[in-house]
Nucleic acid binder design. Structure first.
Lengths: 214, 214
DNA sequence: AAAAAGATAGTAATTGATTACTAACTAAAC
DNA sequence: GTTTAGTTAGTAATCAATTACTATCTTTTT
């Protein structure tokens, strides 16, 4: 289950990193909201109490995890976008980078989406929200750029396009979680994106007044 | 917070119904996995112990809730589909019925998606999976019918189209949860669906061999 | 270089709070 | 007056967090 050989007396920062990775690994198979500090400790061959030598409380652990996820995910999609000039192609690269990241770390989206649902705003939740905000901002920028260079129709609703983009990934994650197979995600992803792409590329008639349904 | 006036000594079945509704209401504002039996009881002006006079255990409550959600949701989308002959129009009606249902009961998707994530299969989780299965089946049937009658291209991947359909709703729910405003969902829904519709209507070139990017 | 001293990391046991669930008792309904 | 519904007061288990103690690594002193 745990590949780490027993490594004792790690320096503090190293131990914190190991802790974060342990949580991400656990979240791949366990519902984030019932990951206990005992389970985290056990997964990294440590006693439960030792965790609190490195984190003031449990939410601090979650904070560190969300920071880890945010940094890695944004870095991945930014790197994927590097050098690609076409906004639409950038979106596609970003999408596939995101899918690859999630396939590698299934715990990431589970924690993220789980965290976003929460009622009161813990520091960890604020980090999750911040990630979503930055993610949506990147998407919006791309879509606007796509309109500017003629790749996307001006009538396209930016907000709706970002919502669907994010929902697309959530849908893939959900299906993979149900099937218990993350590989499925990589297979379906291109087809799903193809549908999305055709949806936003096609000019829409603005539909002012009247549903026009028949 | 609770509209129910103090109603005591309800008949058993009535009390069970009230319980289910209380849970759905609570899930609108609280993360499902930390809804306690005490919170449920308090929300319906009852003592915690009384709940176990009507349910053998907590999972039985969740089972009843999932059953409630499944029945109401499927009934709503089936009714919305009634009399509509065009598969595409049926999908649209189904989508809007689903959105309306979720806007009325924000707790429903939270519990559903939360339940689906779980590791081991409790009876409640099995019900959630069954709902998703039936939902996907209805969608697949519609898409196949759409292909048969020429409204949708034969090359369309049915599974990808269903995944995106479900993801579309998840995306809308997520955005609304973040914003804390369910009305937003009803506003964005038509635009999001318009993108989806154009995506599946447009013929795709099958893309055999070669990515054809650049 | 060896010993002493201090800092750092981890253990094992325990804390108080919270949880689902139970049982003995009481009030209401038919 | 018996059945049904609800209350009160518990239980055992689990959780995050704390405590007193031990082990290991690092620095200083001689």
């Amino acid at each position: 289950m745990n590949t780490n050989v027993r490594q004792k007396n790690l320096p503090a920062e190293e131990r914190r990193n190991v802790t974060v990775e342990a949580v991400v690994e656990l979240a791949a198979h366990t519902n984030p909201s019932d990951i206990t500090t005992a389970a985290i400790a056990k997964h990294m061959n440590l006693t439960q109490g030792a965790l609190f030598r490195h984190f003031p409380n449990k939410d601090a652990i979650w904070q560190a995890v969300m920071k880890w996820v945010a940094e890695r995910l944004l870095a991945r999609i930014d790197k994927a976008a590097e050098g690609v000039t076409s906004p639409l192609e950038t979106m596609q690269a970003m999408f596939h980078a995101h899918v690859a990241f999630v396939a590698e770390h299934p715990g990431a989206p589970r924690m993220l989406f789980g965290e976003l649902q929460g009622a009161k705003a813990t520091p960890a939740k604020l980090l999750a929200r911040e990630l979503m905000k930055q993610y949506a901002a990147r998407l919006s920028r791309l879509i606007e750029a796509g309109k500017a260079c003629g790749e996307l129709p001006d009538e396209l609703e930016t907000k709706s396009a970002t919502t669907l983009f994010i929902g697309m990934i959530q849908g893939l994650v959900m299906q993979s979680l149900i099937a218990g197979d993350m590989e499925q995600m990589r297979v379906n992803a291109p087809h799903v994106f193809a549908i999305y792409r055709r949806g936003i590329e096609t000019a829409q008639p603005a539909n002012r007044g009247g549903e026009g349904v028949s």
